[in-house]
């Protein structure tokens, strides 16, 4: 039994960042930074219950989207002019455990199939499972370097290519990367840091009433997980529906000239490298507007999500004091 998402006390920013990624997966994931024991992992695991369904090609092991890109299997079918049917599948949270081996990340040869049928077939790995789903890495900063290399590789291309035992296979690997880390345990590789669309900082709650509430809910959950789930079911369904609605309305949200220029103004003033920050901010603001039930992006939306999108991009060099930059951001946002 997993602790329900809605029953997690406070930590609103973390919850929002995750929800916005469900609404628009192209935002690019969330990095959750925080000290020990602040419900980082609990929140991400709880997400699974809220995930909506997505349209996939029927029978495809890689959850290919009907709009493409396609895996080798689906491409074969298209070439042979076979009709592709669609079906709905619930999005998932796929975990990448710390002790993972490389062949399980990229996939390998399906032996049983090979022995029984005498034909070589690709056995999907974690990257395949993660396609169009959430890929969750707990303690992402402790992940082995050679595994991070594999992640970066497919994150950049959106494709996983496998050549092994005479099997060659290509399949899309577009995942929403969610990582948690405790910065005290070590740094994250800058390349990987940049891959995360949003970044949230969680702290322990200092408010006594909230702390008592956490303890109460935790004890209640431990004593009777099923009863607890029932109690929170309404809240869970409500938010799941809100997410689905927002997802549907996402494309209708108007991106106004004003909102684009507001985003660019902020990033220009902060002197950020690259265009990823601009894009992520706009997408996140749009998702937030959809989630809040608005028809267009307002200045308030941008103001609200700017820290999420920019927090981890402010720091360009190690040791550079980011508090100064953070203040600058704060000042800019105040003006809006």
């Amino acid at each position: 039994m997993i602790f329900p998402f809605t029953a997690i006390v406070d930590q609103e920013e973390m919850k929002l960042a995750i929800i916005l990624n469900v609404i628009d997966p192209s935002i690019g994931g969330v990095l959750i930074m925080g000290e020990k024991g602040t419900a980082k992992s609990t929140t991400v695991r709880a997400l699974a219950d809220l995930l909506p369904e997505i349209e996939v090609i029927k029978g495809c092991r890689f959850c290919c989207s009907p709009q493409g890109p396609f895996c080798s299997d689906c491409l074969d079918k298209i070439e042979k002019n076979q009709a592709l049917e669609n079906e709905k599948k619930k999005m998932r949270v796929v975990e990448l455990p710390l002790g993972v081996t490389e062949d399980r990340v990229v996939g390998s040869l399906d032996i049983e199939h090979a022995i029984k049928r005498g034909e070589k077939r690709f056995e999907p790995g974690i990257l395949a499972d993660a396609n169009r789903n959430f890929l969750y890495v707990d303690e992402v900063n402790l992940l082995e370097d050679h595994i991070v290399d594999l992640l970066l590789d497919s994150a950049a291309m959106g494709i996983n290519t496998v050549e092994r035992e005479g099997v060659s296979f290509v399949h899309p690997a577009r995942f929403i990367l969610v990582g948690t880390m405790n910065p005290e345990e070590g740094e994250l590789r800058p390349q990987l840091l940049d891959r995360f669309g949003l970044c949230v900082q969680v702290n322990s709650i200092r408010d006594k009433a909230l702390r008592v509430e956490i303890l109460k809910r935790k004890a209640e959950f431990d004593d009777d997980p099923e009863g607890f789930h029932k109690k929170w079911q309404n809240a869970q369904e409500e938010i799941a529906e809100k997410i689905i609605n927002a997802k549907e309305r996402l494309k209708d949200i108007a991106i106004t000239e004003e909102s684009v220029s507001a985003v660019v103004d902020i990033t220009a003033e902060l002197n950020l490298d690259g265009h990823r920050a601009d894009l992520v901010m706009l997408k996140t603001a749009r998702a937030f507007a959809a989630f809040s039930g608005r028809a267009e992006i307002t200045q308030e939306d941008i103001k609200k999500i700017a820290p999420l999108a920019l927090r981890h991009r402010l720091k360009r060099l190690p040791f550079e004091d980011i508090s100064q930059e953070a203040e600058k951001l704060h000042a800019i946002l105040e003006r809006i």
């Binding site: 455990p97 002790g99 062949d103 790995g125």
Partner: peptide, 13 residues
């Protein structure tokens, strides 16, 4: 912490 051992090793899930 997870109370679950997720094995993704050597072709075993």
């Amino acid at each position: 912490a997870r109370e679950e051992n997720i094995i993704e090793r050597e072709g075993i899930t």
